[in-house]
């Protein structure tokens, strides 16, 4: 009975790890994200293979009901991941905002040049001066 469960959880964990590795190899997931999930998979694998380890760990941590340790760990982990993603998302939003602005400015400049109109910074020395001045270059980072 216990061994059936053991085999089942081990298989599920191995499948999970396999999927992660496949995604990384197919470059569908960046390695930096995969490390976290591989770590999670590894921990689950150890708990699946070694019977009684969860109970022992829980007792050591002063938790009477072993599954509670599992829930606690999972909750904390997901919380950490959610916060990390919010941070990552804010960064990406700021970058996409900057890119949108830069794209709009670049298109406007191209259109002006195509119309044969003189753009403000049109002569080559002005453009060169602009590119040399760090304050005038596109600041991609805040």
């Amino acid at each position: 009975m216990n061994s059936t469960l053991q085999v089942l959880t081990t298989l599920v964990t191995l499948t999970f790890l396999g999927v992660i590795v496949r995604m990384v190899r197919a470059r569908q997931m960046r390695a930096k994200y995969s490390f976290l999930w591989m770590l999670v998979g590894a921990v689950f694998l150890v708990f699946s293979i070694v019977p009684g380890l969860l109970d022992k760990t829980a007792r050591a941590a002063g938790i009477l009901y072993a599954p509670a340790l599992l829930f606690l760990g999972a909750t904390l982990l997901l919380l950490f991941i959610a916060v990390h993603f919010s941070w990552e998302l804010s960064r990406i939003e700021e970058r996409s905002r900057t890119l949108t602005e830069e794209l709009a400015l670049a298109i406007a400049r191209i259109e002006q040049l195509e119309r044969g109109g003189v753009t403000h910074a049109s002569s080559s020395h002005e453009v060169a001066a602009r590119d040399a001045d760090p304050k005038l270059r596109a600041p991609l980072r805040r």
Binding site: T100, E101, A104, L105, A108, A121
Partner: peptide, 27 residues
């Protein structure tokens, strides 16, 4: 007027920042 068109609605703050960048680059 000179026109810069953002590809989608980004809000006044972003529209304005685009204008500031335009102003800086065009001295």
């Amino acid at each position: 007027a000179y026109v810069v068109s953002l590809p989608f609605n980004m809000g006044v703050g972003t529209a304005l920042r685009t204008g500031f960048r335009y102003a800086v680059r065009n001295r």
